[in-house]
C-alpha cells in the first residue's frame, strides 16, 4: 500500500517543484481543453501547431532584451503570435490563399527569425528551454501567468460560446441574419495565442500543442456535444499531465514529452476502443450489419 502511495502521491508530497508542476498542468488543461476542441471543430488542428512556432521569435526578442525573464518573453511571444494571426487573417481574407497556407507561410518566416535570433544571441541551452520548456522549473510568476490565462480563457469562452458554436456550425446562416461572425474568430485566435504563450513556458512551444490537440482529438471518440468534448478534453489533459509527471519522476524522463506521450496514449486508446466510431466499434458494427 505504501509503495502505491509513494509512487503516485509521494513525489508531490515531497517536492514543491512537483506540486507546482501539477498545478501548472491543471491551469494549462483548463485553457487548452476548450481551445483544442474548437481548433478541431474549426478544422484548424494544424494551425495550433503553426501558432506555437510563431511565438518563438517574440520570446527570443523578449529574451534578448530582458534575459530569462518570464513577463518579457511571454509578452514578446504574445505579440509575435498575434501579428502572425493578424497577417494570416488579412491574407486569407483579401487573397485567394487559403487559411492554412497563409498561416504556414507566416509561421515559417516567424520561426526562422526566432531560430536565428536565439542562435546568434543566446546559448543552445536557452534554445532548448524555449523549444521544449521545463515544467519542473515553473516558478510563482509563471504559475500566476498560467492561472490568469486559464481564468481569462474560461471567462471569454463563457461569453462567446453561443456565437462561436453557431458560427462554426453554419457561418452563412448567421451572416445572412447580420451577425458578425468574424469577431468570434478573431477573439478565438487571440485565445489560441494566449494559451500557447502560457504553455510554452512549461512545455515548450512544440509540446504545448500536444496538450492542446491530443485530448481534444481523443474526446471525439467518446462524446458528441461541444460542452462534453470540452469537459472530457480538460480532464484528459490534466490526467495526462499528472501521469506524465509521475512517469517522468519515477523513470527520470523529460517531463514535457512524457506528458504529451501519455496524452498520445489516451488518443490511441480512444481511436482503438472509443464508443463513438472507434476502430473496435466500427469493426463490430460492420460484423453486426453483415449477419
Amino acid at each position: 500500500m505504501t509503495t502505491v502511495y509513494d509512487w503516485l502521491v509521494g513525489p508531490f508530497a515531497d517536492f514543491s517543484f512537483m506540486r507546482r508542476a501539477l498545478v501548472a498542468c491543471l491551469a494549462l488543461s483548463l485553457g487548452a481543453g476548450p481551445v483544442g476542441v474548437f481548433l478541431v471543430l474549426r478544422r484548424m488542428s494544424l494551425i495550433g501547431d503553426t501558432m506555437a512556432h510563431s511565438v518563438l521569435p517574440g520570446a527570443a526578442v523578449g529574451f534578448m532584451i530582458a534575459g530569462l525573464s518570464l513577463p518579457a518573453m511571454s509578452l514578446g511571444g504574445f505579440v509575435a503570435g498575434v501579428v502572425v494571426a493578424l497577417f494570416s487573417g488579412l491574407v486569407t481574407r483579401f487573397t485567394p490563399l487559403k487559411e492554412d497556407a497563409s498561416f504556414a507561410s507566416f509561421f515559417l518566416i516567424s520561426l526562422a527569425i526566432g531560430v536565428l535570433l536565439v542562435s546568434t544571441h543566446g546559448t543552445t541551452v536557452d534554445l532548448m528551454h524555449v523549444l521544449f520548456g521545463s515544467i519542473l522549473g515553473v516558478d510563482d510568476a509563471s504559475l500566476l501567468l498560467m492561472a490568469a490565462v486559464a481564468t481569462l480563457s474560461l471567462a471569454t469562452f463563457a461569453v462567446i460560446f453561443r456565437g462561436l458554436v453557431a458560427e462554426c456550425f453554419d457561418p452563412a446562416f448567421l451572416r445572412a441574419l447580420g451577425a458578425r461572425g468574424g469577431i468570434y474568430h478573431t477573439v478565438f485566435l487571440i485565445l489560441v495565442v494566449l494559451n500557447m504563450v502560457s504553455g510554452f513556458q512549461a512545455l515548450g512551444t512544440l509540446m504545448a500543442v500536444g496538450l492542446m490537440m491530443l485530448p481534444a482529438t481523443a474526446a471525439r471518440f467518446w462524446v458528441r456535444q461541444v460542452w462534453s468534448l470540452i469537459a472530457l478534453a480538460t480532464v484528459a489533459g490534466f490526467l495526462s499531465g499528472y501521469a506524465g509527471l509521475v512517469l517522468s519522476y519515477q523513470f527520470n524522463l523529460p517531463s514535457g514529452p512524457a506528458i504529451v506521450l501519455v496524452a498520445g496514449g489516451f488518443y490511441l486508446l480512444s481511436l482503438a476502443a472509443g464508443p463513438r466510431d472507434g476502430m473496435l466499434y466500427l469493426i463490430l458494427r460492420r460484423r453486426h450489419l453483415r449477419s
Partner: peptide, 13 residues
C-alpha cells in the same frame, strides 16, 4: 438563408 448542404459540417457535434 439555407446554404447548400455541402456548406454545413454534418459531423459537427
Amino acid at each position: 438563408y439555407l446554404p447548400q448542404a455541402a456548406a454545413i459540417d454534418e459531423s459537427f457535434p
